[in-house]
Nucleic acid binder design. Structure first.
Lengths: 181, 181
DNA sequence: GAAGGCATGTAAGCTGTTACATGATTCT
DNA sequence: AGAATCATGTAACAGCTTACATGCCTTC
């Protein structure tokens, strides 16, 4: 999914400025499975406007650049619809953490312990966030399905880490002592 | 993690050619959380050789380019160790599928059903693969921890999809009929 | 007073993918 | 016969991130 389509997707839910769209990708429901930065969003929005996929309403502000509120047009809605007709590419997962844990014996067990604990806390917070939204935001049934999946996966990952943390770290300490000899 | 470090990581487990390293990223244990293509691997390997991180042994072959088998040097091992000292960046997940499901009401429910079923089959196969490796490959305790986590997460995702598939598709059909009116 | 949020936009640069170039062998 | 596998390497191109440029307001 290119950034332009992602912007259309955000705008299909509500009007927004470029800045707000970025926030959606940092905090909103899309954040869990798509990313976009400001340097990519602004040009994408300009292009989308040129193609009449969105309209712009400038709102003057005091002491700040004019706020440009973008709205999805019918043409834009159709473009989003068409973009959804593709066959999805395989998921891409990049995890430095899993890489580091894979080679955990190269590092102090205390650091690995900290990284695991931080990750557990992260998964817990993400799951909690998703659960708080709750199944009531019934607008999109798809959103609810994905929300539940996210919550389930975060919980499973956190639970696994909690359950195996200590055993793993014990093994690791033994191995590291050996490697250090 | 840049491709060079990824190559060092693969070579730390066994000597390999560039071609074999790519296969590791397509099928091996790293495939689940890191990617690298040939066009990135070959230049990375050349650079690594220049920096004495790896040595090359050319093996003549009939009717094919010479096979270049790379081995990690002590310098390379140290470089890998140093690369592991970084603080990991947040995981990056990109999923076209979840995006499409989010906007599932834009498409025929049959397609969504197919995509979900394909994904369930995929998760099942991945989990099965990880379970077959088993906890016996005791070389790296970290590998085992990550392997178990992967298996757990794949199972959780597949189970969630199985459990919620039908309800979701029913909601979706109702909504789609409405949207089509 | 410093840091961070609000608000837009450009451009350099990094990184990686895809396609091209070459070519034999083996499986279907 | 055609596709896939083995095997390396280059180069064009695409896409995104980061830094720069600007500047006020609010919170700590």
């Amino acid at each position: 999914m290119d950034v332009k389509t992602l912007c259309l997707a955000v705008l299909s839910r509500r009007d927004a400025t470029g800045y707000e769209i970025r926030k959606q990708f940092a905090e909103g429901p899309f954040a869990h499975f798509q990313k976009a930065s400001l340097g990519a969003i602004y040009p994408a929005l300009t292009r989308a406007a040129k193609e009449s996929l969105v309209t712009v309403t400038e709102e003057a502000q005091d002491g700040r650049p004019d706020k440009k509120v973008y709205s999805l047009t019918e043409v834009g809605k159709a473009a989003l619809r068409r973009a959804c007709e593709i066959e999805p590419e395989p998921d891409q997962v990049r995890s430095d953490l899993f890489f580091l844990i894979f080679f955990a014996s190269y590092q102090p067990p205390e650091k690995i312990a900290r990284l695991i604990d931080e990750r557990i806390a992260f998964y817990d917070s993400q799951q909690c966030e998703l659960d708080e939204i709750g199944p009531n935001c019934a607008a999109e049934p798809g959103m609810n399905f994905v929300r539940g999946l996210g919550s389930t996966v975060y919980r499973a990952a956190a639970d696994y880490m909690r359950a195996n943390r200590d055993t793993f770290l014990t093994h690791l300490s033994a191995k590291t002592r050996y490697a250090a000899e």
